[in-house]
Design a protein around this nucleic acid. Sequence first.
DNA 1: TTGTAAGCGTTATCAC
DNA 2: GTGATAACGCTTACAA
Lengths: 342, 342
Amino acid sequence: MNNQGRTAGLPTLEDVARQAGVSTATVSRCLNNPGQVTETTRARVMEAVEKLRYTPNFGARALAARRTNTYGAVIPTMENAIFARGVQAFQDALASIDSTLLVASSNYEASVEESQIRNLVARGADGLLLIGADRDPAIYDFLAERGIPVVLAWAIGNQPGVSFVGFDNEAASRKLAEKALSLGHRRIAYISAQSTHNDRARARVDGVRAAMKAAGLDPRSLRLVETHYSIKRGKAAFHVLMETGERPSLVMCGNDVLAVGAVMAAREMGIDVPGDVSITGFDDIEIATVVSPPITTVHVPHRKMGNLAAQALLRQTLEGRPPETICLETEIAERASLGPAG
Amino acid sequence: MNNQGRTAGLPTLEDVARQAGVSTATVSRCLNNPGQVTETTRARVMEAVEKLRYTPNFGARALAARRTNTYGAVIPTMENAIFARGVQAFQDALASIDSTLLVASSNYEASVEESQIRNLVARGADGLLLIGADRDPAIYDFLAERGIPVVLAWAIGNQPGVSFVGFDNEAASRKLAEKALSLGHRRIAYISAQSTHNDRARARVDGVRAAMKAAGLDPRSLRLVETHYSIKRGKAAFHVLMETGERPSLVMCGNDVLAVGAVMAAREMGIDVPGDVSITGFDDIEIATVVSPPITTVHVPHRKMGNLAAQALLRQTLEGRPPETICLETEIAERASLGPAG
DNA sequence: TTGTAAGCGTTATCAC
DNA sequence: GTGATAACGCTTACAA
């Protein structure tokens, strides 16, 4: 009582072969290596394919060919646009060579990510795109044992055996902090994404601390709030920061979504940005320009990163090349939310 | 020279069977129907599974079981949040019964959507979630022939053989237009998403026209601009509307993304919203509340819709129930971008 | 150029 | 409760 609906029986290669009066091997060739087949027989086969509306069974094909032309990506979230653009570029690059991308999201949970990875592998992913490097080493072993090429994006690290296509989160964050410090800010707070299993988040905080230290400030004086990733949480964190303890003149945020929350909270609280307090973001996603004032942030070349990640992965998968590391440049997108310290 | 990387040879059921000293059948049972196996042998098998880090090959399983526990969704775009929340809810519902969702996006192109559908079918999708009903009838035939259950969301229609879980786009749009008309607006413009192959977009325009007619206005006086789906295009369309012809007092938008673009353009042009011109959106996604003024829009119960769509699809797939139609209520989210006509 | 046939890794139907 | 074994639909040597 479990296989209703699927009873129809799709046409198979054999049906096509029979219809066209050739062998299954020939039909297979028509579909995969048209060059090896006479023009006339191919025409006949294609006609049969059309007539029967034949679609190859993917599972069977993967089983026999031991290759799926499918790649997998596990991203922390689909709910906001941080990864959307990069993944889209990644997908476009794959589509241009007739490969497919399967996308899964982990909701920033390590255990979910792990099961998504296993799932993609079981589905025969020829290669994987993952975000950041911070995960259980056993996962890398698992992937290496199976010979599945991996590219890690949005960060740079030193995990052996995998490619990196990302940028230096710490340096970028530091540069932004330096700029803020040069504007006279001394009382600094930071709203970070959850930092466990998130090397990007940690590196961004580290960058700020490094800048503070270099400017002669005590890095321990950085007021740090760690929270989940949403506008609502950004608002809440900003409230906490402004209502308890000494008011910061600068609130840096680990990403634009949190920064948008902060800016909105400021408006609701009647706090002027950047007059009373400056706010910065990270990522440069569209929403950062929609809110007012628009948010000064770190521009990350998402599309480029996605595209290069695909290239790197394909070099490994298709050409058997060794892993490589590509570090992209980021730049500060100067907008109105960062001003001189009151 | 094509199967590098994949040479390692994953462990198979047979490897596990050998390791545990049982037959492949028993291993398979342990994994799928643990009840049919002795506690002790199961323990031994599971140990072997752990030791070998065995993961079942999905293709082989699908081939043999003729069932994948995988569902597919093709949405027009991932780049903005319109579908994100609904699809997330859909996915959550599937995950709760250990099924997987494969998501593909069509970029609002009919031909891309069709190939994505074929792709998902080839991958053995047990059922499909699609947006709207407006597509080549041949696609419905294709799906029906294969006995693949389908649920159409974000709209209500009368395609036989498929489920609908959506809302009445025309009525919702009409209600919003009526509200605007009651505020005295008479010079009305509309920025629509591309309407070909998009029944939702067309219905929303129709709703406005119906409201105009009911209010004694000539529906043909509606100034209509059709454009792609992005903030940038929304801005451009708003520019056109304000700089040519008679200035509208109300600009309604087919969705919130376009409305955000319109609001931003107004700010750039020094046009006060809603003092000089009112703007409305549709969908009620987060970005509508981020921009200032926040946008008056039609609230769509995305999560609920996604969840109910999953339930409906599973009823068809798992229980063999006939297709059904579920029409959800929408409501107007009143915010600041809509005000009385100047 | 085309056909034959041996897998690919599972599940499921039988016996035992 | 467990083990053979025949599918499942396709690719790919190897032959013809």
